[in-house]
Nucleic acid binder design. Structure first.
Length: 420
DNA sequence: ATACATACC
DNA sequence: AACTGGTATGTAT
């Protein structure tokens, strides 16, 4: 039986399955036990415990800092924040209509196109799981061997990147360059040109996607990119371009739903009594004092329901990398061979993308799951497998002896292959 | 600027 | 017996 008393640690190990709505409590208990028994005592498990302890320490220090502020007059801070927020409010842009397209279990849907028989069977692709599997307690990113314990008849298919890329191209040439990432489409001009409503445009997108791939998909409309996950699956949700509607929407929104708030930040904010958008509002003064400027700006924008409305800004790639996980490896020669493989793969990717870079980073994960990285900035850009191997080797030699389960090579400070 | 770690999707 | 590849941010030097 699970004997852990630390709630945040259990949440970390179990994921959201344990609290999944629609599951019987006996099922939940069973799922909890299976996952716990399968994880207990593994190096991964112990590393998660370390990470959780670090988080608990951070939370303690945060609460201590808050205690120091008790009884202080913070009126001036409040005025500062309110001024700040009035400024943000003034920049609110309600003129754009944006559709958020998210294809749930996209890989699985593509596989079902190839093999319709799979539709009636529990099936997962790679280590991820599709919706149907979730009633067994299987969740995204759960390792296959645990998923199999929860559902022995589960069919796990290997990932086929090229296939999904092709599927995504077929879906919407307009925006889905990466099949696993949701797409944001600014349809403001399209609506003007066609005279269609946002609902009609979205309906059209959904129909085209269904025709081309039969993929399961979810779509919401939002100026503010926080409507996803509502009405899943096959749902469509319209958030009106109206301040009151948006503020009401944000008010009760659990912070974890915000793109950018993950497990750790959720725990940190929860410890400060912040669970919803409204809590952000109420705790704004203390958050201003406890969080970094960047974090507070993020919170501010979220609390006011402000999202990106200019989707035309395009980003340049900042880095490119290759990493591989393997069985624990301590032999130096074996490690050098692995480095060679990875350098060759990275060089091939660099050639394809026609880029080179001046900063090389070696990433290692020890057999106890702790991660380290070592980097070096060079006077000149490199791109050949030989050079990547040469500088990677220098970094790797420095760490000997070391027992590792993952190695990665990353190149940053990138430049176009043609330049200089 | 650079190095390293962490969080997130 | 717990992935990969990318971005952003915080902190120290």
């Amino acid at each position: 039986e699970p004997t852990e008393t630390n709630a945040s640690f259990m949440a970390r190990i179990l994921g959201p399955s344990a609290n999944k709505a629609g599951l019987q409590s006996t099922d939940k208990a069973m799922i909890t036990r299976v996952i716990y028994e399968a994880s207990k005592g593994t190096p991964f498990f112990e590393n998660e415990r370390r990470k959780d302890q670090a988080l608990c320490g951070r939370i303690e220090r945060l609460l201590e800092k808050r205690k120091q502020l008790e009884g202080r007059d913070l009126t001036h801070i409040r005025k500062l924040v309110d001024m700040d927020w009035r400024q943000l409010e003034a920049e609110r842009d309600l003129s754009q209509t944006i559709v958020h397209v998210d294809m749930d279990a996209f890989y699985a849907a593509v596989e079902e196109l190839d093999n319709p028989e799979l539709k009636t069977k529990p099936m997962a692709v790679g280590v991820g799981a599709m919706d149907d599997g979730r009633k067994y307690g299987i969740r995204s990113a759960m390792p296959g061997y645990i998923a199999k314990k929860l559902c022995p008849e589960l069919i796990i298919l290997p990932l086929n990147g090229a296939k999904y890329k092709h599927g995504a191209r077929a879906v919407v040439a307009c925006a889905l360059t990466c099949p696993s990432t949701p797409a944001y489409l600014n349809i403001t001009n399209y609506m003007k040109e066609t005279g269609m409503t946002a609902e009609q445009v979205t309906q059209q997108i959904r129909q085209e996607i269904r025709m081309l791939t039969n993929a399961y998909q979810t779509s919401g409309q939002s100026k503010h990119q926080i409507c996803s996950d509502i009405n899943k699956p096959n749902g469509q949700y319209m958030l009106a371009n109206d301040r009151d509607t948006i503020m009401a929407f944000v008010r009760d929104m659990p912070i974890r739903r915000l793109n950018g708030i993950g497990r750790v930040t959720e725990q940190l904010l929860n410890a400060l009594g912040v669970h919803t958008g409204n809590d952000m509002h109420e705790q704004r003064v203390i958050l201003k004092l406890l969080l970094s400027p960047k974090s507070f700006e993020f919170i501010s924008r979220a609390a006011l329901g402000l999202g990106r409305t200019d989707l035309s800004i395009q980003y340049d790639r900042k880095s490119i990398s290759v990493e591989r996980t393997f069985r624990n490896m301590s032999d130096v020669q074996q490690q050098m061979d692995m480095l060679d493989k990875i350098a060759t793969k990275l060089a091939a990717n660099l050639e394809r993308k026609e880029i080179k870079g001046a900063t090389i980073t070696l990433k290692l994960k020890r057999s106890d799951f702790t991660v380290l990285s070592r980097s070096r900035s060079l006077a000149q850009c490199i791109f050949t497998a030989d050079d990547l191997y040469f500088y990677g080797k220098q970094l790797l030699v420095e760490e000997q002896p070391i027992d590792i389960r993952l190695m990665g090579l990353r190149l940053s400070s990138l430049q176009d292959m043609r330049s200089k």
